[in-house]
C-alpha cells in the first residue's frame, strides 16, 4: 500500500472520498509537514448513503493523525508508544526493531518522567549500587546521564517464554550497541479495551521494592 492510500485510510469514514492534489504535485515525500498537507489537499466528499451525517462531526480529526509518525510500525507498539508518551508522560520514545526467534518485532526505548518512582537506586541491591553505577556509566556513555527504559509491547494472548525474553535482552544489546544487556525491560501488555499494564522483567536478581 502506498503512503497516500494509507493516509486516506487513516482519515476517511465515507464511502467515497476523493483527494485532489490542488497544486498538482506528486505525493512523493513520505513526511509532509502539517501545513503542507492541509494546503495541498482538498477533500471532496460524496456520501450518497449517509447523507444525514453531519460532515463536520464525522470527519475524523485530521490533525490527530498528523501528529503520529507515519513510520511503518506495528499497531501494538504504536498503542504502547501513545500510552507512554501522552498518558504516562514519558519522552523521547523511539522504536527499536529487533529480531527475536526469527520474527521481527519492535521494542520501544523511552525516557521516564523525572518522578519515575522505581529508579535504579531503590530497586537494585544497595551493596552493589556502586558497582552498578560504574557499569552504567560505561553502558550509557554517549546518551548522557539519562537512563532509557526498554519496553516490549505484547498482546494479551501472546505466550512468552524465558527463551524469548532472553533473546530480547540480547537483541536490545546488539541493536543498541551497548556494552552490556539492559538491567531490565518492561512488558507493556495491551488489553482489548486499550488498558495497558506494565510489568518489569529484570535480568537476574533484583532487590524487592519497599512499599
Amino acid at each position: 500500500m502506498s503512503p497516500l492510500s494509507q493516509y486516506v485510510c487513516n482519515t476517511c469514514l465515507f464511502h467515497y472520498l476523493i483527494i485532489l492534489d490542488l497544486q498538482n504535485k506528486p505525493f512523493s515525500s513520505r513526511r509532509l509537514t502539517r501545513r503542507n498537507k492541509k494546503q495541498r489537499m482538498g477533500l471532496l466528499l460524496a456520501d450518497p448513503f449517509f447523507a444525514n451525517y453531519s460532515l463536520k462531526q464525522k470527519l475524523f480529526d485530521l490533525r490527530s493523525e498528523l501528529v503520529q509518525d507515519n513510520e511503518v510500525m506495528s499497531v501494538l507498539s504504536n498503542q504502547v508508544k501513545q500510552n507512554l508518551v501522552y498518558y504516562n508522560l514519558w519522552s523521547n520514545a523511539k522504536e527499536v526493531p529487533i529480531v527475536v526467534s526469527d520474527s521481527k518485532c519492535f521494542v520501544l526505548k523511552a525516557l521516564p518522567p523525572s518522578d519515575f518512582s522505581s529508579s535504579s537506586s531503590d530497586s537494585l541491591n544497595f551493596k552493589f549500587s556502586k558497582l552498578q553505577e560504574a557499569e552504567k556509566d560505561s553502558s550509557v556513555g554517549s546518551d548522557g546521564r539519562e537512563e532509557y527504559e526498554y519496553i516490549l509491547p505484547v498482546d494479551m494472548d501472546d505466550k512468552i517464554t524465558m527463551k524469548f525474553l532472553d533473546d530480547c535482552f540480547e537483541q536490545i544489546k546488539i541493536s543498541e550497541r551497548i556494552a552490556s544487556r539492559p538491567n531490565r525491560i518492561i512488558l507493556g501488555m495491551v488489553n482489548d479495551d486499550s488498558t495497558i499494564v506494565y510489568y518489569f522483567v529484570h535480568d537476574g536478581i533484583a532487590k524487592p521494592r519497599k512499599n
Binding site: D61, R63, S64, L66, V67, Y86, D192, D193, S194
Partner: peptide
Amino acid sequence: NQLEYLQLM
C-alpha cells in the same frame, strides 16, 4: 490536538 478516542471492547 485531540489524540484520544473511545475504545470499545
